[in-house]
Simulated scan of single mutants.
Amino acid sequence: MSDREGHSTAPPTDDDLSLPKATVAKMITELLPPDVVCAKDTRDLVIECCVEFIHLISSEANDICEKESKKTIAPEHIISALKTLGFDSFIAEVEDVLKDHKQQQKDREKKVSKFEQSGMTEEELLAMQERLFADSRARYESGKP
């Protein structure tokens, strides 16, 4: 099966699933001491291990989700899967990342609501910004604070 441009639209197989090689290589480089390098084969093996780990956790979280008659895997299902599979040592860090993620979402929502609270369109805000820049530039060029 393919779409109009000729790309495959069939569900991906395990062979199709991977992680970005450049991103993984960068992460490995950042974690290793400066005098240690990682072979390409090793990087590829790390990627395969990561994909397998994701499959394992996702599958277990899905089982937990189904037992609770839920249709969406929630973060709590992932944490339960980690516990069930014996990855208890990961849970504190996962919970910290989840907490940070939720805070970032709240911060983004605050920014959106400030825009909405302004009562101005994006064009009006842009025009105001341009006026403020022009006023500031004029004060700077005249030497007056």
Rank of each mutant, 00 (worst) to 15 (best):
D3F: 00
R4V: 10
E5H: 09
P11T: 08
T13I: 06
D14P: 11
D15K: 10
D15W: 04
D16G: 04
A22V: 13
T23G: 05
T23V: 08
K26R: 15
I28K: 00
T29D: 14
T29G: 07
P34L: 03
D35L: 10
V36C: 04
K40G: 10
K40P: 12
R43D: 10
R43E: 15
D44F: 01
D44L: 05
I47S: 06
E48Y: 04
H55N: 09
S59I: 06
E60G: 01
E60Q: 05
N62A: 01
I64W: 00
P75G: 00
P75Q: 05
E76F: 01
E76G: 07
H77L: 03
I78W: 01
S80T: 09
A81P: 02
T84K: 10
T84W: 01
T84H: 08
D88T: 07
I91N: 08
I91Q: 10
V94A: 08
V94F: 04
L98T: 10
K99L: 12
D100Q: 13
Q104I: 09
Q105E: 13
K106I: 07
D107M: 04
E109I: 05
S113C: 08
K114S: 11
E116Q: 14
Q117A: 15
Q117G: 13
E124C: 05
L125I: 13
L126N: 15
E130C: 08
L132Q: 15
L132N: 11
F133P: 09
F133H: 15
F133W: 13
E141N: 05
S142L: 05
G143A: 01
K144R: 14
K144L: 15
P145M: 10
P145G: 14
